[in-house]
Amino acid sequence: MSNTVLIADDSMFMRQILKRTLAEGNYQVIAEATDGCEAISLFKEASPDIVLLDLTMTCKNGMTVLKEINNLDPNAKVVICSAMGQSKLIVEALNYGARDFIVKPYFNELIPALNKLVS
């Protein structure tokens, strides 16, 4: 059975690209959030294996969502997927419990990064 993923990104276009990439890598998208509040709610409901999380979202930003998810489940596998790839943000996200940081649009790195998390 494929690993399940929650995508949290405010851009429908980006969610479509991520869904296609994940499907090609044999990952199953079980939920999509359009803002940070929805991401937390869907995480609680769906219990995905992996969360792909954008940093720039409404209601709650990705860093806040990351902290809340890790408070709910310290073993959560959250991968930040953001165009904001400054080293300070990457270090901050990793310090708050992100398992990896993929800089958009370099999605060729996405499946190998996820495969490392689930193997």
Rank of each mutant, 00 (worst) to 15 (best):
M1I: 12
S2C: 10
V5T: 11
L6E: 01
I7W: 02
I7G: 07
I7K: 07
A8Y: 00
D9I: 01
D9H: 03
D10S: 11
S11V: 11
S11R: 00
F13N: 13
M14R: 04
M14Q: 08
Q16L: 13
I17H: 06
I17A: 08
I17K: 13
K19D: 03
T21E: 15
T21A: 14
A23T: 11
E24W: 01
G25T: 10
N26Y: 04
N26C: 10
Y27L: 07
Q28P: 06
V29W: 07
E32G: 12
E32P: 04
A33E: 02
A33M: 04
T34K: 05
D35C: 12
D35E: 05
G36P: 03
G36K: 04
G36A: 05
E38S: 11
A39F: 01
S41Q: 06
S47E: 08
P48G: 06
D49V: 12
D49R: 07
D49C: 11
L52V: 07
L53G: 14
M57L: 11
T58Y: 08
T58D: 06
C59K: 14
M63N: 02
M63F: 05
M63P: 00
V65D: 00
I69K: 05
I69P: 04
N70S: 05
D73A: 10
D73W: 00
P74F: 01
P74L: 08
N75M: 15
A76K: 00
K77L: 15
C81N: 12
C81W: 00
A83Q: 06
G85E: 08
Q86V: 03
K88G: 10
K88E: 15
I90L: 09
A93R: 02
N95I: 04
Y96L: 13
A98R: 06
D100G: 15
F101Y: 13
I102F: 02
V103A: 03
K104P: 02
K104L: 03
P105K: 04
Y106A: 15
Y106G: 12
Y106S: 10
F107N: 04
F107Q: 04
N108M: 10
L110P: 08
I111M: 13
P112H: 13
P112L: 13
A113T: 15
L117C: 10
L117Y: 06
V118K: 03
V118N: 12
V118M: 14
